[in-house]
Nucleic acid binder design. Sequence first.
RNA 1: GCCGCGGUGGCGGAAUUGGUUUACGCGCACGAUUCAAAAUCGUGUGGGUUUUACCCAUGUGGGUUCGACUCCCACCCGCGGCACCA
Length: 843
Amino acid sequence: MYNPKKIEKKWQRYWEEQDLHQAKDFSRKPKKYILIEFPYPSGKGLHVGHCRPYVALDIVARKARMEKFNVLFPMGWDAFGLPTENYAIKTGIHPITVTKKNTAFFKRQQKSLGLSFDWNREINTTDPNYYKWTQWIFLQFFKKGLAYKKKIPINWCPSCKIGLANEEVIDGCCERCDAKVTKKEKEQWILKITKYAERLINGLDKVDYPERVKILEKDWIGRGEGYEVVFKFKSQTSESINIFTSRLDTIFGATYLVIAPEHPVLEKLRPQIKNFKSVEKYIEKTKGKLERERIAKTKEKVGIRLEGISAINPATGKEIPVFIADYVLMHYGTGAIMGVPAHDQRDFDFARAYNLPVIEVIKPYSQKGKLPKKAYLIVSNGRFKKAYEGEGILINSGRFNGMESGKACQRIGDFLVQKEIAKEAVHYKLRDWIFSRQRYWGEPIPLIFCENCAAEMRKRVSKIKGRKPNKGESLNPGWITVPEKDLPVKLPRVKKYKPTETGESPLAEIKHWVNTKCPKCGGSAKRETDTMPNWAGSNWYYLRYCDSKNDKKLASSKLLRKWMPVDWYNGGMEHTTLHLLYSRFVYKFLWDIGIVPKSVGPEPYKKRTSHGMILGEGCVKMSKSKGNIINPDDVIKEYGADTLRVYEMFMGPFEEAIAWNSKGVKGARRFLDKVWKLKDNVNQKSRIKNQGFKKLVHKTIKKVSDDIEHLKFNTAISCLMILVNEIEKQENIPLKYYSLFLTLLSPFAPHLSEEIWSELGHKKSIFLHKWPKYDPELIEEETFTLVIQINGKVRDKIETNINISEKKAKKLALSQQKIKNWIGRNKIKKTIFVPKKLINFVI
RNA sequence: GCCGCGGUGGCGGAAUUGGUUUACGCGCACGAUUCAAAAUCGUGUGGGUUUUACCCAUGUGGGUUCGACUCCCACCCGCGGCACCA
């Protein structure tokens, strides 16, 4: 009887004792770095959804080892984070204790799946020996002037008492606790990811990522090419304002300007604004609004006109009114736009509400008298129904009339640039990365604020007491870096884990920790009490695996050169715009400053794949409230880890979401039972005479090998099943073929394969055996089924020689009675012959 | 609205460059085994009809082609993401 409980533990222990999964730092074999996103060890334990990518990449790793690659397949814990902290707040248990418990739980579960991680390189982001380097990386950002502190309105979660990055706000609510997010002005550390925007886009051309991932990242970065154009205000003031547009061809149709309510120019214009009180009120009102609300799909476009202010359209020279409106955001473009009602729907709606003139400047290309589908229509009274946003031929645009949009953009651009009214510009949707959290369970930011040094810096003393300040210190007066020898800045013990009422981190209340000496002037100073977001630790973890125990460096250049880049990185689609983008940014920075050797290249991950979610039965998300959570422990208990592995790989295409089906699990177990039973029919001496069977074996080798590389585990298993069904039919199974089959099965069902392998008398582990190679000659077929079609419909099939000539095939086909009947007295107009496939008669 | 992915039996899903639609598994039915059940094994299993055979079937409607799940056009539905982005 196949009893997984008996054998699985045994082999897991054996593999560990034999150090079978250890990546070798000193080995001449070619390396393969296979990486799977490390989990956040929540208290709930492993989800069957976790298992899917784990098992998949475990299969890839096991196969690669059998192909004699030196495989690095590591695992660790992304353990800083809110759930643990919230648990600590609730229970008073220290997050360290909770993390220890959870990681032990996760690790036990992972091991019970038979995953072949190299546990020698295990890392934990909350380990001071690890976060020492997370802090060190932050210091490098700071020193290079890529970190700055700024008072900005941040997304504020009143429940978590924490600032959130835009990316963490979902539907105006906190990603984690779902509370409604408000705005709060807060000093925050910010990393200049926008400086890398261009390179983050360009780098995508060099890597093997799914197209949808590339598109998602590109859209997120949101590169917009266009022009910044200066609009002068009329006479009363010398002030002017820059607008950004990607459609300079429509500038002759710009009949008003809209400025974001936060725009600093408003303060300067104040004396001229006659209705400043109402304007101020509007600005106040905007402050209370969430960005989500401002840009929400509302019917009305509401703004307020700046009375007494008007601007000059530099193209037409005409005077146009100026508005502020909250739908224009300060952080995109220049915070101001030109309103072109005829050719932008938002502007059109706004113009209607305020009765502004609509001037048509682009005429759609006419195509054989037909207007493009989205063309505007002029109703009889001369009013537009909707804006035409497409390209076309310019009209009402002076000397540019008759030009096509694309050309016009350039020509008008050249013209305005020459007059120094415009310049080419590129803007991005991507925003700088807010890197502060006012929370406890994160890496302390290793900076110290010194009043004394700040004062000196303001007095423009370039040298503070003997040491030249770094770029970050000059940018952020008074903020002094903790010397690298003093890292890590350890997270101190606190009594209460909850942030203070004012929203400061609980660290702010530990006076003896906060109060320290300035590393520069030696005077009294205060530590930064903010901590880093939970992505800080996960942005560079794959580098640490290369050299996880190094206490001198983040990782040695030698080992980084050895293992990097990651050859294959699998993770969730949901991490595409957060973790994946951020970690590429951090990598590029570390590469720039020479921490990662130049020879490794500018991208950390050669290939990225994404797994699909596992849903509950009936295609709904698994959740406690629905009571449909499948615990992998239970499945292993009932059927064994190998069954769970085979089932999850067989259930459907790896990259697509799929629902759990408990009956399918049984099917997987049945398959393994069958494999188990077959071992009793193995005969050392028997030989296979059947050439067809040999062919099948070699075809299976090819298919399984190819399918694993392309994540097509479901079809790989299906052809293994076909082979087993065929083996079953043989009376005596030759040892050779059964062993061969086992090696193919072993990455999928490692315990069962190892057990049978040893029962068959093999002394060494099956995983030290070579991955089989197929014989290309053997998979060549000699015969094939010739499909005979009449007018494209299958009318008959006949088995024949693979190299049959067209002439012979035709003769053979026409000799079939069925075909004779079909053709009858009809004339054959045409014959199509596809070698090794079919012959088709057109009658 | 835009972007991406998808729509194939009762179900999960297979199907080189357009060339045998429904592999493999589940479920179901019948049979064997059993006192009986479970398990196991065997056989069958897209729908229809006038059943030695033919017709219809890959979301819908067109098109290209000797031939379309596959390519083109239009539309419908589902999932995911983004959304007054200038």
